[in-house]
């Protein structure tokens, strides 16, 4: 019986630690190995309508969407993306939706990007490494050559992504996703107490909320993900303008800047 109880407690602690591991301050901006933007010539990036969700996190863990907050945040994030796009040294266009058959195409690739992002998140950001995605690098430390194994950003949407190039005229596509859940009054009260019950030997610290986001850049010639950035505990309240500015700054962290000062064509 004791061992059974112990197992139950361990099980509980385990599932709670999973809740915890889903939220650590994990930031990760990665560029595909060997990737660099072409040094000269025009470069077009299309930014698709950001996928934004804002809601309330209830005591039981339910995430209730809030349409007003979501729309406000989406507008703010879009505005900030437009404002910060100037720094990218490229022609940046913003497209909410495509028309006709291309609308379905975009939906399909949004779905695929989401699935690929899930894999990158699990196997790169969270470090649940896949051996087939690792490479060994040599480097020098203390005057001695050493080797280390690192995860690479080696994911693709496939060459079919070139259909989006045809539809938009862009060389690269950027997908942006944010999800925020703010603790509501009941949840905040539970947070003030600090713990939500200490049962079978394990205490649960109530999360303040969920604030995750990612941005990814796809080469529309090959479908390759050339840059991916995700953060499981993002700052900035996207419902407010200054918060959205901070949030977009974080989403764009590590963006592979172009190594030139080519004038941007109109």
């Amino acid at each position: 019986m004791v061992s059974m109880r112990l197992r139950a407690a361990l099980g509980a602690a385990l599932s709670m630690s999973l809740v915890a591991t889903a939220v650590p301050a994990h930031a990760g901006s990665m560029t595909r190995e060997g990737f660099a933007f072409p040094a000269d010539g025009d470069m077009k990036i299309v930014v698709f309508r950001p996928d934004v969700h804002v809601g309330s996190l209830k005591v039981g863990g339910m995430d209730e969407p809030n349409a007003e907050w979501t729309e406000q945040a989406r507008v703010n994030i879009q505005n900030q993306l437009q404002a910060q796009a100037e720094a990218l040294n490229a022609q940046v266009s913003f497209i909410d939706e495509l028309e006709g058959e291309n609308a379905e195409l975009l939906t399909e690739y949004r779905g695929l990007f989401e699935a690929v992002s899930g894999s990158v998140f699990q196997h790169v950001t969270q470090g649940d490494s896949l051996d087939t995605k690792k490479v060994t690098q040599t480097y020098e430390s203390g005057g001695k050559p050493r080797t280390r194994t690192v995860n690479t950003l080696d994911w693709t949407l496939g060459p079919g992504a070139a259909q989006l190039k045809e539809a938009t005229g862009a060389d690269y596509a950027m997908f942006v996703f944010t999800h925020d859940s703010y603790g509501d009054a009941g949840r905040k009260a539970a947070q003030a107490v600090g713990m939500l019950g200490c049962i079978i030997g394990a205490c649960v610290v109530v999360q303040a909320g969920v604030h995750v986001g990612y941005a990814g850049l796809v080469n529309l010639e090959t479908g390759n993900i050339v840059w991916f950035n995700t953060d499981m505990s993002m700052g900035g309240d996207p419902r407010k303008e200054d918060g959205a500015q901070k949030r977009v700054g974080q989403l764009m962290e590590g963006f592979p800047m172009r190594n030139t000062t080519v004038a941007i064509a109109d």
Partner: peptide, 27 residues
Amino acid sequence: MNKFIGASAAAALFFSAATPALAGWKL
């Protein structure tokens, strides 16, 4: 938890909702 995690967990749902922390991969 949300759509993002959902994407990665969609297939994993088949198996178990609470395993990633212990998961590991072998070549």
